[in-house]
Design a protein around this nucleic acid. Structure first.
Lengths: 184, 184
DNA sequence: ATTATTGTACCGCCTGGTCAGTATAGTTGT
DNA sequence: ACAACTATACTGACCAGGCGGTACAATAAT
């Protein structure tokens, strides 16, 4: 009851925060700027997130929850040997096609403000890595798949020789084949 | 007077800056803290780097120059088909074994303060990616190698399920084999 | 009326950057 | 030889602006 009432404003705040980090850079994500972008006052922002760290924590958690559930959803349609690896590959590539990479944006915001905020992210990653290493295929191949997609993020996050669409499509296919050929 | 290792002040400043970012986080890399760590006054720091951006620029440039020359040095002993890819793989893995990953640390410091400071990094990356795509082997494989090692950085930078030594060694071998099997 | 939410005004701290001046070593003029 | 001057390296005190956070009044919701 209370939670449903809180939702809209809280989400507006989080969205505003994303927008700022993505378009203006992390340093411009001030609580006042967030308030302006969300169309409310600074006091209201602090009412919902009594500290900046709590806001960032919410950003990180939200995104990782989304990603994880999308991962699991994909997995159910997949199953079988190398299924989790296939899901990971598919989900990350899907994510990339849609808009900006909000995950790394949130990670960055967290890292800059307080590395402890990365904790939920770390926990998820441990789970994923574990799943990949026990996916009934060669764990080294599974790890290559994970790291390649992470590297894709990295390159886009920093804008360091980002991979264009055609090469990315080829990447997807080659990695997918790699998974299939690694089935025992 | 025996040659007392009296490093130039500029280097001491840069080293102090690295230390701070690496151990305390980016936010703690203030010009005052750098001065303290370097054992000089704040004014002295600004004497050598009239702005914080210039200091960070120096950090980024130095590291990328080092990396690039190490890359080329490795390449000379290598040559052949897929030589550049092999060099890239080797150099990054060597880098990882020694100390912390200062490259990404510098990148982060740059990104946080002013994305323009990434320019030299971008230029190098464009060159590298270009070399990899024209290495007389399947460019997709070459790119996978690059992105996997970048992903390795990423995971260490954020501490997200970093890869342990044994798996990393296996990664190296598998990637190396992948390069060889991609020779035409 | 009571509670939940939001606006306004403000505070204290930190940070990048400035500035006037100092110390020292080398150079020049006489 | 000696004073005057210059260049380089550095100090320490200071400032203006921005930021997270607070206090409290005002309004909206139940």
């Amino acid at each position: 009851m209370i939670t449903t009432q809180n939702k809209p404003t809280k989400e507006k705040i989080i969205e505003a925060a994303y927008y700022l980090v993505r378009s203006k850079g992390i340093t411009k994500m001030t609580m006042e700027a967030v308030a302006d972008k969300a169309g409310i006052s600074k006091g209201a922002v602090f009412y919902h997130f009594s500290t900046k760290e709590l806001l960032i924590e919410a950003m990180v958690k939200q995104l990782f929850n989304n990603f994880d559930s999308q991962l699991n959803q994909e997995y159910e349609n997949e199953g079988k040997l190398g299924g989790r690896t296939q899901s990971y590959l598919k989900t990350t590539f899907l994510m990339h096609d849609q808009e900006e990479n909000e995950l790394s944006v949130a990670l960055l915001a967290a890292l800059v403000n307080n590395p402890d905020l990365l904790k939920p992210a770390k926990e998820y990653y441990e789970i994923w890595q574990n799943q990949l290493e026990n996916d009934q295929i060669n764990p080294v191949i599974a790890t290559i798949v994970r790291l390649t997609t992470d590297g894709l993020w990295f390159s886009e996050l920093f804008g360091l020789a980002p991979i264009d669409k055609t090469l990315r499509d080829q990447l997807y296919e080659t990695l997918s084949e790699l998974i299939n050929s690694a089935k025992k």
